[in-house]
Write a protein that binds this DNA or RNA. Structure first.
Length: 644
DNA sequence: TACCAGA
DNA sequence: TCTGGTACTATGAAG
DNA sequence: CTTCAT
């Protein structure tokens, strides 16, 4: 493989791969019309060991690209010709590949705003004719320039394919290969909100149909549940709003929660017709439901079985993020038991939402349809993660009474309202109006009620206003800065912080850049911290004036990253970890593990929608060590001068 | 959003 | 009692 | 001092 020619030759009449192919023993053959695709078997865990590579499981259309003398066909799983369906762009790019004949296996996808392939986005793009959104991820090469490659090993096929497709970020891409341990790759994929991974045996040959050389493992759990009741729709008189689900434990039927999404209106009506006829008076569950759980519920004979996809179990044994997938007519209700999967158990303490809202349907993010209630749900779910970053600190708040499209204003003083859970605090150094702080989830929910869409805390706490307990460096890319450069900047910042003995953590900003955050023991005062961060920012800019700038002058920022150290000053604030942003996309600032930094996670990758799913799938908090890693800041110069 | 002035 | 207008950071650096 | 940036 090292012998492979490294430069592409457009329209080469002989393939640059032919010589090496002959050595590797591929068979001469004519180009087949179609090869039935190789399929993966579903297992609950990915395979372990060095014999496997792993790829992301795409959520799109599996297609075979057949290239013959510049004529391209896109063939479905069953061999149907769908070339015309996706517009000319992908076809043109495939035509331009430097080959005479080839058969490429891949998946056509549309990525949603989070950069994750999304089947519903694909269907929307198809129906609206948005051809420019289609991407083709190639992952296998079955035939090339007169040779059948199916009997070569996967590694060899992939090497050739990678060489052919290249690493451009255009609509034709290579499906990335991961060589790490399968368990870790799956964990990583789940954190990213992906559906799962496909693991492939390195030495395997290409064989049509489902075999054991390709294994798929998924992030979300999926299993059958007994339908024990329903709640009628609040909008339609002849449809269900949600299903009440249970599992058997011996003879006892246990309640596991409701599912209110995943069905179309037609299916909701069909279920209503079926279930209406099955109603019973007494509850089928062994234990009574809590009053909120039992609200509006109509019980039915527990006979029907539904397939449900869900992200995990809560600590009180309820389903998280359940979605209806269909009825399982072939399954007997009495066989349905809880299929325990410890890794998917979400161990957060369940938080009850107590605050009552006015106008809970008020839309804050119109494009995403995130309402006040949706925002309250979000903060309730992330409470235990966001709490350390916003509790007991003076806050500046970005309020958007009409949602993100209306007027916005920053506020740090109280407005005239009776607060039950927000705290008014007096700045010991200023005799101005009191500032705002909060201590519990109810306080946060009062902010939601007041249309607070961004939360910007101080870097010091109410216990010690004058000594900050963290530093935040905001890396803000100017126009035309590639994302890789921002990642490199964050890593350089980390290295420089570590050189002076500080810990460094990274989070997305939810806007354009990354934030590098260092926990401090609250010993150094504001002026020292400010001087330290300014020195750091200036040093980075001085060492690399073409990449960094440490002053905020907008016109000088073209193609550079602005290192904003000014947040590290008394009274200055920066957006909190897990705070939402008042921007299109309902993005959120999310703490990451350094290893997660990649082109796959952009600055606004995580949203109100997918962040709770990430946290549910997360087995370890990437910032778990944040508080423990706090060290005392010493001035860089004094460290040097210091002696034992 | 929520307050308040003015109708 | 209803309606409509409007409220709302601090700071540093550059010019 | 004003303007512009976060």
């Amino acid at each position: 493989m090292a012998a492979l020619d490294t430069h592409h030759q457009k329209r080469a009449k002989a393939s640059p791969f032919l010589d090496s192919l002959a050595i590797q023993g591929a068979k001469k053959a004519s180009l087949p019309e179609f090869v039935e695709p190789m399929l993966a078997s579903l297992l609950t865990a990915p395979p372990a060991g060095k014999d496997w590579i792993h790829e992301i499981k795409f959520d799109g259309y599996r297609l075979q690209a057949r290239i013959e003398a510049g004529r391209v066909k896109l063939l479905t799983r069953r061999g149907l010709d769908w070339t015309q369906k996706f517009g000319p762009k992908i076809v043109t790019i495939l035509q331009a590949l430097p080959v005479e004949t080839a058969l490429i296996d891949g998946e056509l996808v549309v990525e949603n705003s989070s950069g994750v392939s999304d089947f519903s986005a694909l269907q929307a793009a198809l129906s609206e004719g948005q051809f420019d959104r289609f991407l083709f991820y190639a992952f296998d090469l079955l035939y090339l320039d007169g040779y059948d490659l199916c009997d070569l090993s996967l590694s060899k096929r992939r090497d050739m394919l990678e060489h052919l497709v290249g690493s451009d970020a255009g609509p034709l891409r290579m499906s990335q290969r991961f060589e790490e341990e399968g368990r870790l790759v799956l964990q990583h994929a789940c954190r990213l909100g992906l559906e799962g991974i496909i693991s492939k045996r390195k030495e395997s040959v290409y064989r049509s149909g489902r075999g054991k050389d390709w294994i798929k493992s998924k992030c979300s759990a999926r299993q059958e549940f007994v339908i024990a009741g329903y709640v009628p729709s609040s909008t339609s008189r002849k449809a269900i709003g949600s299903l009440v689900l249970g599992v058997y434990d011996g003879d006892r039927l246990d309640y596991v929660g409701r599912v209110g999404t995943g069905f179309t209106m037609a299916i909701a009506e069909d279920l209503f017709r079926k279930l209406e006829a099955m109603q019973i008076d007494k509850r089928p569950f062994a234990k009574p439901l809590a009053s909120a759980e039992a609200r509006h519920v109509r019980y039915v004979h527990p006979e029907l079985v539904a397939e449900i996809e869900f992200s995990g179990w809560t600590a009180d044994e309820r389903l998280r993020h359940a979605s209806f997938q269909g009825l399982r007519e072939d399954k007997d209700a009495r066989e349905v038991v809880r299929e325990g999967s410890r890794s998917l158990t979400f161990t957060a303490k369940p938080q009850r939402r107590r605050a009552v809202f006015t106008h809970s349907d008020r839309i804050y993010w119109p494009d995403e349809g995130v309402t006040k209630e949706g925002l309250a749900d979000y903060y309730t779910e992330v409470w235990r993660f966001i709490a350390p970053f916003i509790v007991g600190r003076p806050l500046a708040l970005l309020r958007c009474p009409d949602g993100i499209t209306g007027p916005q204003f920053f506020q740090k003083h109280a407005w005239k309202k009776v607060y039950s859970h927000l705290v008014l605090v007096n700045d010991p150094k200023e005799k101005s109006e009191p500032l705002l702080a909060l201590h519990d989830l109810d306080g946060l929910l009062e902010l939601v009620q007041s249309a607070v869409l961004e939360i910007h805390p101080w870097q010091s706490t109410l216990t010690d206003w004058e000594r900050p307990d963290r530093i935040i460096m905001d890396l803000d890319p100017g126009e035309g800065v590639p994302w890789e450069m921002v990642i490199a900047a964050a890593e350089e910042m980390r290295d420089r912080l570590q050189e002076v003995g500080l810990a460094a953590f990274v989070k997305t900003s939810g806007g354009k850049g990354l934030h590098v955050v260092s926990p401090l023991k609250p010993l150094a005062t504001w002026p020292m911290v400010k001087t330290f961060t300014k020195t750091l920012a200036d040093a980075m800019a001085a060492d690399n004036p073409d990449r960094f700038i440490s002053t905020s002058t907008k016109s000088k920022r073209q193609g550079k990253i602005f290192i904003d150290y000014l947040r590290n000053q008394r009274g200055m604030t920066a957006v909190a970890a897990y705070s939402t942003r008042a921007r299109p996309g309902a993005s959120v600032s999310v703490p990451l593990d350094w290893k997660e930094l990649s082109p796959n996670i952009g600055p606004a990758y995580f949203t109100v929608e997918n962040t709770p799913i990430r946290l549910a799938a997360l087995t370890g908090d990437p910032w778990a060590e944040f508080q423990a890693a706090a060290v005392a800041l010493e001035e860089p110069r004094s460290t040097r001068r210091r002696h034992g």
